[in-house]
Structures are given as C-alpha cells and as structure tokens.
C-alpha cells in the first residue's frame, strides 16, 4: 500500500496537489471491477495501517476516525511549529500590531495541536503519530512577505483540509470539534490574506465564483501539498477509510 504515495514529497507532486484525488478516484474505479478482492486486500492491510510507523520509515496516519484525528494533528503540528518560529523571531518589517497578532495565532495553533494530541491519546491509546520534523527551508523568516505567503498557504490548506475530511468522521463530537477549529483557521486565513492584500480574504482564487463555496481537498491531496514542509513521509491513504 505504501508504494502508492512514494512520490508524495517531490516538487512535481507539490505543484499539482489537485490532481491527486482524481488519480485516486480512477484507481478505485478500476479497483471496483474486482471489488471483492479489493475489500480483502484492504482488510488484509489493516493491521499495518494501524501502526504509527511502517517498516519503510513512512508515518502512516491510520484509518477511520483516528486517521482523521492524526491527519489534523499532523497539520496542526506543522502550523504550530511555523508560528512558533514566527513568534520567536518575527520579521523585522512586521508592525507591532502584526507581531501581537501572530503571537495570538501561535497560541491558537499550539492549542489545536495539543488538543489533538490529548484527544488521540485518550481515545485511541498507542495510535498517535510521532512528533513531526518541520522543513521550512523555503521560508525566509526575516521577511514579512515570505512569512505572510507561507502563512496564507498553511491557513488556506488547513481550511480545505477540514472541509474535505469532515465527511470521514463518524463520531459526532469530533465532527463538531473539527467545525469549531476550521472556522478559526478560516478567520486566520482571512486575516493573513488581508495583510497581503486588503480585500483578498475571500477572493475568487479561493472561493468558487459560481457557488460561493470555499474549497475542499481530500486528505491525500492535502498531505501531498504539505509534504514539502515535513521531513517524514506521511501516508494518508487510509484516513477515514
């Protein structure tokens, strides 16, 4: 199973995350022709899927609700690490107000991260993924523009991730919690976008201009987009399955 996303971290994959779910969908269309065999294959994998780390060194987010929680935990680890850096050494061209705001955002993301850690450890002991190692080489933390651009990427991706993963949650309380977090991420996204260009909080690049809907991304597409910022290879193949 893990071979499916071996290419997840390379530049080409990062550049076109939107293609990923289509590829997966067509894979399952073909698989559907032999549905019985596929079901056996998936259930045969389930023992491995539940492990935090596969023998290949890949971090498997897992299946079912726990997979979704680990998926969210991975993203919140990334965001929390990013804003912790911003808070610790803010770009010199940030205003005092902006510095203060990013201290607030850093607190929110640290809380989200710790929330998922506590929730997974309580409700699925032994299933939590490891601490991830962020890779922020492409971000110039000394420059406001670079920090804001990265922040926009993380916040919009976070919104799209929760929008796309909510349907995989089976436990109502976790779905509500995901809703409680995603709207805060959307508020962050709007704030950061307005700092970059006032009025771009919900522009046509991010909101469908016909339906007025925000975007939703499948977990594998989200991880493909985030993989470039994380050292460990993540496998989201079974999230919510």
């Amino acid at each position: 199973m893990s071979k499916i996303i071996n290419s997840g971290g390379d530049e080409a994959e990062f550049a076109k995350p939107l293609y990923v779910p289509i590829k997966r969908r067509s894979f399952f269309m073909y698989a559907g022709a032999t549905a019985g065999a596929t079901a056996l294959l998936l259930s045969g994998c389930s023992d491995d899927d539940d492990n935090g780390v596969t023998p290949a060194g890949m971090v498997n987010l897992g299946a079912g609700d726990v997979g979704v929680l680990n998926f969210a935990y991975a993203l919140e680890q990334l965001e929390a690490a990013f804003y912790a850096r911003v808070k610790a050494s803010p770009a010199s061209d940030f205003s005092a107000t902006e510095k203060d705001y990013f201290v607030q955002v850093a607190a929110h993301e640290a809380i989200h991260r710790d929330f998922f850690k506590a929730a997974i450890n309580r409700d699925a002991p032994g299933k939590i993924i490891q601490d991830l190692t962020p890779v922020f080489d492409t971000i110039d933390f000394t420059k406001r523009a670079s920090v804001l651009s990265a922040a926009r990427t993380f916040e919009d991706l976070g919104v799209q991730a929760y929008n796309g993963a909510g349907k995989y949650l089976k436990t109502p309380a976790y779905l509500v919690i995901a809703g409680q977090i995603v709207s805060v991420e959307a508020r962050h996204a709007a704030y950061v976008r307005d700092l970059i260009s006032n009025g771009s909080f919900a522009d046509d690049s991010i909101i469908d201009p016909i339906t007025g809907l925000d975007k939703a991304l499948e977990p594998t597409a989200v991880i493909a987009a985030a993989q470039g910022f994380i050292k460990e290879k993540l496998d989201a193949t079974n999230v919510g399955k």
């Binding site: 919104v159 929760y162 929008n163 796309g164 909510g166 349907k167 949650l169 089976k170 109502p172 779905l175 509500v176 809703g179 995603v182 709207s183 805060v184 959307a186 508020r187 962050h188 996204a189 709007a190 704030y191 307005d194 009025g199 909080f201 919900a202 909101i207 007025g212 809907l213 925000d214 975007k215 939703a216």
Partner: peptide
C-alpha cells in the same frame, strides 16, 4: 448543524464549505 448531516457526506461537505466562507466574511 454539522452533526445532523454526519451521514450525508455531500450535504455535510457543502455546509462546511459555506461555513468557512461565513467565517472569512466575519473576520474581514
């Protein structure tokens, strides 16, 4: 309302996508 829609995946996703837009509006 999200828990009301928990078994209706497409309805839920649409509601979440509107919900996020409202949050962006509120922030602005």
């Amino acid at each position: 309302q999200v828990d009301v829609l928990i078994t209706e995946n497409d309805l839920l996703e649409a509601a979440l996508r509107i919900h996020a837009v409202e949050a962006r509006h509120a922030a602005h």
